[in-house]
Design a binder for these strands. Structure first.
Length: 104
DNA sequence: TAGATGACTCACA
DNA sequence: ATGTGAGCCATCT
């Protein structure tokens, strides 16, 4: 069933417009269970496929980037976000109040 | 089947 | 902003 969840995560991430980010919890809620925030992170970790899943748009509730990125480290994630128009602080923090994708 | 693990979240200090 | 403790869920061993 993990492919199902993975697909859902993929779709949700693809709905995120450029210059926007979402929290793990948001993805979990989209999957139908806010408690799956952890599982979401787990999946992205076990599926380092940025070509399909823009996981660099996913941050934790504090707006901080993941500690260890699968395809080049957190530094790569920071670069991708900045490239998308998201300001990332030197501490790898993003302003959720401005960049969090609220779903329009 | 059961126990341990983790890219999480929330509350409190 | 950081640290600790508790809760939650699917996967891995």
């Amino acid at each position: 069933m993990r492919d199902d969840i993975m697909e859902a995560i993929c779709e949700y991430l693809l709905t995120i417009p450029g210059g926007r980010v979402v929290t793990y919890k948001q993805v979990a809620e989209y999957l139908g269970n806010p408690g799956m925030a952890r599982v979401v992170g787990n999946y992205l970790h076990r599926n380092p496929d940025p070509e399909r899943y823009p996981c660099f748009k996913v941050v934790n509730s504090k707006g901080k980037l993941s500690s260890q990125f699968g395809f080049g480290g957190i530094d790569a994630q920071k670069a991708r976000l900045e490239a998308d128009g998201v300001e990332v602080s030197d501490d790898y923090y993003v302003d959720l109040d401005k960049y969090r994708y609220k779903g329009v």
